[in-house]
Structure formats: C-alpha cells, structure tokens
C-alpha cells in the first residue's frame, strides 16, 4: 500500500523532473526562430502595428488587474502560465525542414485566464527577448505582439471553448487550441512581412506564399510538440490543483482526464 503510493508519487515527480531537464537541455541551437527582427519592418508598418496592438495591451492590463482583484489566489497559476510561455518560447526546436523555430505556449494561459490577460504575459516574453537576446525587436514589437500576444490567445481561447463544448473532451480541445494558435501566429507573421514587402510582380500574395513557405512546414511538428506539452501541463494542473481550476471555471462538467 505504502509502496504503491510511493511509486505513484515519485512517478509523477520523475515525469516533472524529466520534462524540466528536457526543457533546459533541448535548447542547444543558437539559431533564431521566428519573430520579425528589429528594424525589419518599414517605419509606417511598424508604427501601424503598434497602434493596432496598444489597445489590446491596455485592455489586457485592465483584465489582469481585475483578475487579481477578484481572485488574488489565482496569481500562482498566473505565474505558472507565464512561466510556461517563458520556457516554450525559449526553445528553438529543430524541425523536419532542417531549420529551427520555437513554440510559444500562450494557449494554456489563454484557456485559463482568457485571451486579454495572456496579451500581457505574451508581451512580457517578447519584451524580454527583444531587450536581452536581440530576438524580435522593439520597433517590431507591435507586429510581433499582435501576432503572438493578441491573435494567438484569441484563437486558442476560441478553439478551446468551441471544441470543449463540441467534443466534451478537454484534452482534445487544449491540444487543438495550442496547435492552431501556434500555426496562426506564424501565418500572420508571414502575412505581416508580405504586406510590408510585396513581390514586385506577384504582389502581396506571392510574397506571402514565399514567407509562409519558410515557416509552414517547419512549424507543423513544433505546433504538435506545443500541443503535447500544453496537454501535459493541463493534466498536471487537473491532478494537482483542481480547487484553483474550479475558481477559474476550468473544471466543471466533463473532463476527459482520469
């Protein structure tokens, strides 16, 4: 009896340790992954995306404040969601095309706290990378933020809500939310680049096809990885802190786990 509970306890601790090690060790490649680099959007576009992005950031800060006021105890999970995005977006993972890119990890937080709150956390990650690692940039933060910290969380949230209702299976909804939000971000980034740099003959469409081709195939296995990891986090959350999840209305009704 005691033995089996030990095995169970250390089994899950082992899984967590393994993942943590994996997450730290698996980032050997100094290569960049995909955000629009500093200075790589013409001034007009950079400003324009900033203007589109700022209202969402404002709304996000408001939503975050409201969340903390209503449920101060949820800040632990908030830190967890932020940390998850932090880790995932630092991992440049090799892909089948022979180039590297990275996942984002904003889907989990978006399903927990809603898309607005996740805008703030996603922006924080982007800011960290722009300032310290010269990855992405301040001038392009508007565009990158709109893709990764606004559209991706909304897509994740919508997919999750829709699929959860439709299939009644949280795992599937979470997986699809992570995969789709990842793919949408990269398509949007390609579109942003295409708008700013249309092809001289084929215009925006041809340019988009070219940019999208760079990322599309690279991104698919990464999106699936992100989906797996997000579901894994979801399972741990359900195991370890059902009370908190109930407060956030993440649990309730049907779940596919255990």
């Amino acid at each position: 009896m005691i033995k089996s509970s030990y095995a169970k306890r250390y089994g899950s601790v082992g899984a967590i340790a393994l993942l943590t090690t994996f997450l730290v060790v698996a980032s050997p490649n100094p290569a960049f992954a995909m955000h629009i680099s500093e200075g790589f959007l013409p001034l007009g576009w950079a400003l324009g995306w900033w203007l589109v992005f700022l209202p969402f950031l404002g709304a996000g800060l408001w939503a975050l404040q409201r969340q903390l006021k209503r449920h101060p105890e949820s800040r632990v999970l908030l830190a967890l969601a932020g940390a998850f995005a932090f880790v995932l977006s630092s991992l440049k993972i090799p892909s089948v095309t022979g180039s590297c890119s990275h996942p984002m990890g904003v889907a989990l937080g978006a399903t927990l706290f809603g898309p607005l709150v996740m805008t703030v956390l996603g922006t924080f990650v982007l800011l960290f990378q722009a300032l310290l690692i010269a990855h992405g940039g301040l001038t392009t933060l508007g565009a990158n933020g709109f893709a990764m910290a606004v559209v991706a969380p909304w897509v994740a949230w919508g997919t999750y809500q829709g699929l959860k209702k439709l299939t009644q299976r949280q795992g599937i909804a979470l997986f699809a939310a992570a995969v789709l939000s990842n793919l949408v971000t990269y398509s949007l980034t390609a579109f942003q680049l295409a708008l700013a740099f249309p092809h001289s003959d084929g215009g925006v469409v041809l340019s988009f096809a070219k940019f999208a081709a760079l990322f599309a195939i690279t991104q698919i296995p990464l999106a699936i990885s992100e989906g797996f990891l997000t579901v894994l986090m979801g399972t741990w959350l359900l195991t370890y802190c059902p009370e908190e999840l109930e407060v956030l209305q993440w649990i309730g009704g049907h779940t596919s786990h255990e």
Binding site: N29, A31, F32, M34, I36, C100
Partner: peptide, 10 residues
C-alpha cells in the same frame, strides 16, 4: 540541414 533559424531566413 544546418538548422538555421527561420527568421534569419526571413
């Protein structure tokens, strides 16, 4: 492959 970053390619 040389596993270059996708945004360097961009």
């Amino acid at each position: 492959g040389d596993f270059e970053g996708a945004d360097a390619q961009a």
